[in-house]
Simulated scan of single mutants.
Amino acid sequence: MPVKSVRAALIPLFTVTALLSACGDSAEPTAQAPKIPQVGVVTISAQDFLLTTELPGRTKAFRVAEVRPQVNGIIQKRLFEEGSEVKAGAQLYQIDASVYEAALKSAEATRLSAGTLADRYEILVKDRAVSQQAYDEARAARLQAEAALERAKIDLRYTRVLAPISGRIGRSAVTEGALVSSGQAQAMATIQQLDPIYVDVTQPSRDLLALRRDLDAGRLQRAGDNAAKVTLQLEDGSEYEHEGRLEFSEVSVDSSTGSVTLRAVFPNPDRILLPGMFVHAQLVAGSRSDAILAPQQGVTRNPRGLAVAMLVTDDNKVEQRIIQTERTVGNRWLVSDGLNVGDRLITEGLHMVQPGMQVEPVPAANVDNAGAANTAEQEG
């Protein structure tokens, strides 16, 4: 082979070798340190709060009066508007009074006759013109006549059917021209006092027993005056603007439901609450001064269903801990065991960590710290 051809063939080979040598000198491997994951943490602290219990209930009228006739007769007038507010003592109906007016006149005449005879015998008995027995009978007849006169006045007064209480009157069950009788089973109308109004709620007896155990053991303290306060949530989810107070608790347990009835009374000036409405009442069960409330974002469940929290230790390593939760308190868990004051709970980046892993803790941004300051939350 000619020398020029050999040189031409070797030049590309030398060029590739030089390039590879140069690359090998500059491409020495460099070891990169593993990146430490960053997690958001919340420092656990103890706080005061009022423990409230949400119970279902129904509203009931403060007073209910069924209007019935006290005398027999024909209805002549209806003097109220259905669904309106009536005052105690206002006339509702007028029953035909002609018969009772005549009876009153007859009773007055009888009273006058008996009284005259008794007065005359009183003079004669002193002169022994009549016997003492005749005089006593005349006095008795006068008393009977006075009683009959009073009864006649009462019957005449009953022809004016009056409202026994103040409140809202419902529909009328009778109209003009209807015959009514004393003591009839059907009410002519019903009046209900709606301001204030009762709310009857039911609480399982087992919850009362658990509450009493917590109070006796010192885990809860009695809430003092706050225990008498009750708030309401209406059927549409809105909050009722007026606050009520607890009146009393039944002294026996309903054998069919195993629950105890509690009664609260609420002001109802705008007549928003009507009898029979379904509501939720929040009652203060007690207070706790050293409660630990953990954000729900930092609590998960393991395959066995136990509550698990991921914590950051003093040397910034992840520790998994099983905790005990009692109930939800707003957007937090009330923790009874497993967490201590000062623990750093991971609420952000849980999907990136494992127990024992080194992490970089930073303040969590996914927790509303304002909610932790609330001292009264509702039971979930």
Results as ranks from 00 to 15, higher is better:
Tyr100Ser: 03
Pro361Arg: 05
Ser182Phe: 06
Glu360Cys: 04
Ala103Cys: 07
Lys87Leu: 15
Leu306Glu: 14
Gln297Val: 06
Thr15Phe: 14
Gln32Asp: 08
Val3Gln: 10
Ala33Arg: 11
Ala102Gln: 13
Asp195Ala: 02
Leu274Val: 08
Val3Glu: 12
Ala22Ile: 12
Leu339Trp: 01
Glu360Tyr: 14
Gln193Phe: 00
Gln297Leu: 08
Glu348Pro: 04
Asp119Lys: 14
Phe278Arg: 06
Pro303Phe: 15
Glu247Lys: 01
Ala227Phe: 05
Arg7Cys: 07
Ser21Tyr: 15
Ala22Gln: 12
Glu360Lys: 15
Arg168Ser: 02
Leu104Ser: 08
Glu319Lys: 06
Asn72Met: 05
Arg111His: 05
Arg222Ala: 11
Leu104Ile: 06
Ser336His: 01
Gly237Thr: 14
Val16Thr: 10
Ala373Tyr: 14
Cys23Gly: 12
Arg142Gln: 12
Thr231Val: 15
Ala138Asp: 07
Lys126Tyr: 12
Ile36Met: 10
Thr202Arg: 06
Ser336Asp: 02
Ile11Leu: 14
Val174Trp: 03
Thr328Ala: 14
Leu149Ser: 00
Pro355Thr: 15
Leu334Ile: 09
Leu13Trp: 13
Glu137Gln: 12
Phe49Val: 00
Pro361Lys: 03
His280Met: 13
Lys229His: 08
Gln192Glu: 10
Gly57Pro: 08
Asn366Ala: 06
Leu246Ser: 00
Ile154Pro: 01
Met352Asn: 09
Val265Ile: 15
Tyr240Phe: 11
Asp254Trp: 05
Asn374Phe: 11
Val180Asn: 00
Gln38Met: 08
Leu215Val: 06
Asp290Cys: 04
Ala88Ile: 03
Asn374Arg: 08
Ser205Asn: 12
Ser205Ala: 15
Gln76Leu: 13
Ala228Tyr: 02
Pro275Tyr: 01
Phe14Thr: 15
Lys317Pro: 07
Asp195Tyr: 03
Gly298Ser: 07
Gln193Ile: 02
Gln221Leu: 10
Asp225Leu: 14
Arg206Pro: 01
Tyr93Leu: 07
Val253Glu: 05
Ala138Leu: 00
Thr53Arg: 13
Val230Arg: 00
Leu179Trp: 11
Trp333His: 11
Gly305Val: 08
Asp155Ile: 02
Thr43Tyr: 02
Glu241Ser: 13
Asp200Phe: 01
Leu334Arg: 00
Val284Cys: 01
Ala163Asp: 07
Arg160Tyr: 04
Ile322Leu: 14
Val6His: 10
Glu326Val: 10
Arg171His: 09
Arg78Gly: 05
Lys126Trp: 09
